Simulated assay, not measured.
Amino acid sequence: MKIIRITTDLEMTVHDFPEGTHEEQNHELRELIGNDCRIYEHVMPERLYTNLKMKNRPTKVPGQCVSMLIDEEGLLKPNHANMIGSYLYKFDEHKIPIAGNILFVGEEWTRDGIDFCGIEDETFELLHLELKNMVMAMKATKEAMNL
């Protein structure tokens, strides 16, 4: 199953969810976030669920619930704001941006609780399309404003 990465430069890439132990998966997820991410934060931005209509609770289908992973220390580093993450997190209301690259991952129930996983195929296709449209709109806005 796949996950989605969006950089502060509005570049969107698709990756396979890492395999291996929790430790190996966590290492790879931190590497994908980049900028020496040592601890990632699990974020459930409201607009991911209200505007993009993703599920905000794990179901019996692994990866139907989607959440965002960010660098816990992103605001303390020389990162730029992530326009997509900040919008989904409602920066315009509470003025706290999401800094650095972001990952969209799935969630699943396991016998040990909730774990991260790749995004279920149908959910992935919908989310990928929505995020692609957002990226294109934000790039066009930046270009029009000479940012």
Rank of each mutant, 00 (worst) to 15 (best):
A99E: 08
H42V: 13
S67P: 07
K2D: 03
R5G: 09
I84S: 00
M54P: 04
K90R: 15
P45L: 11
E107F: 13
T59C: 10
E28C: 15
E143T: 11
L75E: 10
E11M: 13
A99M: 08
K60Q: 03
R30V: 05
I6L: 05
K60D: 02
M83T: 05
E19I: 13
L131K: 01
F124T: 14
G85R: 03
M136R: 15
G100H: 03
I114E: 01
P18H: 11
L147N: 14
Y87D: 02
E28N: 14
E130R: 12
N35S: 12
N26H: 14
L88N: 00
G34T: 09
G118P: 11
T123Y: 03
L52M: 12
E107K: 13
I96K: 14
D71N: 15
K139C: 03
K77C: 06
A140H: 04
I96F: 11
T110N: 00
G85P: 02
L75F: 08
V14K: 05
P62W: 02
E41A: 13
G74A: 06
I6Q: 04
H15M: 07
I6V: 12
C117I: 11
E11A: 15
E122N: 11
Y49G: 02
F104K: 05
I39M: 13
T59H: 04
L88E: 00
M136E: 12
G106Y: 13
E72G: 10
T7M: 09
Y49Q: 07
E11T: 09
I6Y: 05
D121Q: 09
K2R: 09
V105C: 06
